[in-house]
Design a protein around this nucleic acid. Sequence first.
DNA 1: CTCGTGCATTGATGGATGTCGATACAAGGA
DNA 2: TCCTTGTATCGACATCCATCAATGCACGAG
Lengths: 125, 125
Amino acid sequence: MFVNQVHNGGMETLDNAAPAADTCCTPGAGPVIDEQEAQRKARILKAFADPKRLQLLSIIKAGDSAETCVCNLTEPLELGQPTVSHHLKILVDAGFLTRRRRGTWAYYSLVPGALESAAAELVDL
Amino acid sequence: MFVNQVHNGGMETLDNAAPAADTCCTPGAGPVIDEQEAQRKARILKAFADPKRLQLLSIIKAGDSAETCVCNLTEPLELGQPTVSHHLKILVDAGFLTRRRRGTWAYYSLVPGALESAAAELVDL
DNA sequence: CTCGTGCATTGATGGATGTCGATACAAGGA
DNA sequence: TCCTTGTATCGACATCCATCAATGCACGAG
């Protein structure tokens, strides 16, 4: 099924005289992340890859008491309340926000150091 | 149309005796990124939010000569050649890879400091 | 207990995106 | 010149995702 690695189909004249005429480059033997690790990192980074979620994090980060309820988030984002709750759930599941109910209101706050660790995942992949 | 900010519908007994019985929280007056800036950051981060692209970057980063051709990328990712070219184009357009043709082969290399600047976009949003 | 309010969940839908097969382009060799 | 090989692009398809309207749930007030 796979016919990728057939670079020289029966080439006999090469032997070892030609230095590297038909090899494109050395494959590189350094450590490479596997598929599972790549999926884990991608799942984390996907939580940030949305403009509305970035604005959510920015607003919550700029909050005075480091706690923000949903009613203060629907208006500046120009989104419906269900959509805001949806984005907040994604950020909570990704481990970047914590949710705390007080009365009928739900307050969200940043998890300390979560952004920094996510950024570290990017640099040393 | 918008009926969000009508928290107290004709509440007269509150005056200023009750501290903050029906206000959920202070809106927070800190600086917040606008929609345009959020879209710019999201476009950058979206380039990373894919496991195959993360593996691509990892392989290229681990390459000895810091240059890798496409033929060395299709096999470890278990993807077809058009798909690999598609991902590479996304990473080039995002400014994280540079492309250089030598003969019939195309070599890709990491842009120095690109990952670090992208990580910085995450921390100080 | 009933009502009202803030928030979460569900179902549906339009748009974005990853993947592949087919094809076109570029460059070197016969 | 024609042919071969590596790469990029195109068209199509399947899936994912952001969004909304409708509904359900939790909690406080009366």
